[in-house]
Design a binder for these strands. Structure first.
Lengths: 262, 262
DNA sequence: GACGATCAGTTTGTCGGACAATATGCCAAT
DNA sequence: ATTGGCATATTGTCCGACAAACTGATCGTC
């Protein structure tokens, strides 16, 4: 990098002839980020943009692709372009994939989960609403009926912790813990298959946590969450996996829209 | 949503013929994510991809744009395409922008920071190396000389907390706190301008935290971090801003490469 | 032999035009 | 009110082309 910097002092900024497709994307980006275009509002057609920016359609399209990818633009039912807010789940997916590619270890993941889940339960005790309580109670009830089905338990466990996170009412924390949550999920199922007492212990922990949330008992919540996460750690090594191995082996959603819920 | 769902039960999955540019992007994505293409390795030229995929160059280009945007592909010195790992800072920038667009409040941000920084210092006490200590000591020394320069203090404060995060040796936690950190930074400077005792208090807190890290004193670390974050909260309301106002007013990097460090 | 200048080939960014497939909007018919 | 038909609009893809910027090799000078 910086060829000229060796011989002369770096006096001038790198002259940046940004490609036109970037300029297009940045222009639209500014309109959305600044709020002049509201989420859900329609952007013109490609032909409109061609006229407005005075560039070729190919150029416009490349710009649009960038914005779609970054979540600021969406195609409504395959056609019209609409402004949009980046979906948190999409961002979280990206992040967890980045973590895998950077080969973070299970130990890092476990440590982080330990912290983040304690954070979450602590805030949830304070901020949870009755609706949150209902949703969590429902989840716990379903878990009670599924203790014999490992994959179902793993699924409900993830849902439980997501509901806890929602009950914090804190979207910053929700987003912070989401990537780790996505990564830990596939690691849980083998535990329920290999360790018979894992599912019942999970069910008890979840039940106690629900009680703690109901009575807003911070102390109990902390204790049980700690125990619950520790159980996971023990179960993990019990399945013969090393904490220092890199996290891996998850089939990721592609960078394009998850074919999931609408 | 779901127009057809009202009259008839939703029996069939949406039939999806993915456009060719997405298929191109997904194909390359798989190669990179699976590790068959290593980060830094060169992808062929656009012409090569045209030959391999049997599609038009425009189509290839759109696919490439998507991958560039998601950080899996990079242009080396403006030209060649190389595989790449998504950079954490870029992801963090995206996330914080998303948080702003979702209009999270300062209260949420503050609560989350409070949690995350305590997490970080707790782990840093355990995992910090001597190198970490040196870097942090250097930062604190510079802070001591800059207590009269509000913008410099704000900058050094951010750096301090980033160094703490690095000292945890935990990349999951680093990534988790980064978006919040990016958001809080612009909010700090006005405090040092408006509250004279803020900078000296910050300097003391940082010094104490450094000591705690050096002696691996978890108790002191927790206490001082708590106090330090609380100071921020008090300073924030002292500058007349409401905790329930949405976080805003940051000029974001665009979705394209930050014109910063190489 | 090391160094810089020169030059041809490669690659990217942009353009213009074109066409098929699909979605939309409007109107008639049941 | 729902269905069917039809003209139109819009997107996805293709083709061919060109200037600017970069790459790599050659050549000349010291």
């Amino acid at each position: 990098m910086g060829h000229a910097a060796d011989t002369a002092t770096e006096r001038f900024e790198r002259i940046s002839a940004a490609p036109a497709y970037q300029l297009v994307a940045e222009a639209i980006e500014r309109e959305i980020v600044s709020g002049r275009i509201r989420p859900g509002e329609r952007i013109g057609t490609e032909a409109d943009l061609v006229k407005q920016f005075g560039v070729n359609r190919s150029t416009v399209r490349e710009g649009i692709r960038c914005l779609e990818q970054s979540g600021l633009l969406r195609r409504e039912s395959g056609r019209r372009l609409v402004a949009s807010l980046p979906r948190q789940t999409k961002l979280a997916t990206r992040m967890s994939r980045a973590l895998v590619l950077h080969q973070v270890t299970f130990r890092e993941l476990y440590e982080a989960i330990d912290m983040l889940e304690r954070n979450a339960i602590e805030l949830a005790v304070i901020h949870r609403t009755d609706d949150d309580l209902d949703a969590i109670a429902d989840n716990v009830a379903r878990t009670g009926q599924a203790v014999d089905d490992p994959s179902r338990v793993a699924e409900l466990d993830t849902e439980f912790h997501t509901l806890i996170a929602r009950a914090t009412g804190n979207r910053v924390l929700q987003l912070a813990r989401e990537p780790a949550s996505l990564l830990i999920y596939p690691a849980t199922q083998p535990i329920f298959e290999a360790v018979p007492e894992a599912a019942p212990r999970l069910f008890e922990a979840h039940s106690r946590l629900l009680d703690a949330l109901r009575t807003r008992d911070a102390e109990a919540a902390r204790t049980w969450m700690r125990r619950h996460v520790a159980d996971f750690g023990k179960g993990f090594v019990r399945t013969g996996r090393s904490l220092d191995a890199p996290v891996e082996g998850i089939q990721f959603d592609s960078i394009f829209q998850t074919r999931g819920s609408p």
